[in-house]
Amino acid sequence: MKLFSLGHLVAYSIRLSCVRAISYRRDLIADLALSLIGPASALVGLIMIFSQTDQLGGWSFGEALVLLGMFHVLGGFKAALLDPWLGWFPVIAVRDGALDVFLLRPGSPPVLGMLALIRCAVLVQSAFGAVTATVGLTAAGERVSASSAVLCAVALVVGCFVMFFFAKGLAALSLFAASLQLDVFFGSVWQFGRYPVTVYSDPVRVVLTVVLPVGALSVLPAEFLLGQFRYDHFGISVTVATVVMLVSWSLWRSGIRRYSGVAA
């Protein structure tokens, strides 16, 4: 699909999502409330932990708040775009055969599927994350330079790509085993990202950085925002993003080849 028409499609899908959101008032209120209560409870959890300690894995309270903020900024993207699709995919698309419809549309089936199910209201979680990060920066006494902000934005974009390809790879696995429903698993692994990766023991840290990279995605943008230019971390992230992209691409390709539809 050409870039221009993809942009056009994204814009139209967001518009439709907004129209859908406002036509169901109760769901809209639920979306908005839940997008705030969830992160707020995570904040309470962090405050509780810091009532017992003054540092977590080498991170002060302010720094951990910045990290939690980035976790929610990325979490908003996940909740708006990836979660609805990942929940829909194994059941409706694979088991009930709705994937047929998407396979016959001119464009990437995961992208078209996500755009069709996008839920814009929950992006308020990202806004909450941004506020949390700002409060964290103040508490940590950090001033953000322009270069830090740009690098943080780049890291967030890389993070979104990693999450997209990770979700695509997980969905592709359900093409091999139709009973596999990995949205819940994705959600659980994702929770690891709310704390600094240095909290975990070495093997767990390696798993969260390399094998299940969504567990450590919030670290890099938080580090950049805090002025810690860890280019080695950036290098690892870009490498991991590339590997995730390639693995997910090949999983999807062979999964689709295996896909057999319901009425076959």
Partner: peptide, 16 residues
């Protein structure tokens, strides 16, 4: 999505 109108779907396909 079932919440969309027929015209919404038609326009979506026009772009797609």
């Amino acid at each position: 999505p079932p919440e969309l109108t027929v015209l919404d779907v038609l326009h979506y396909n026009r772009i797609l």
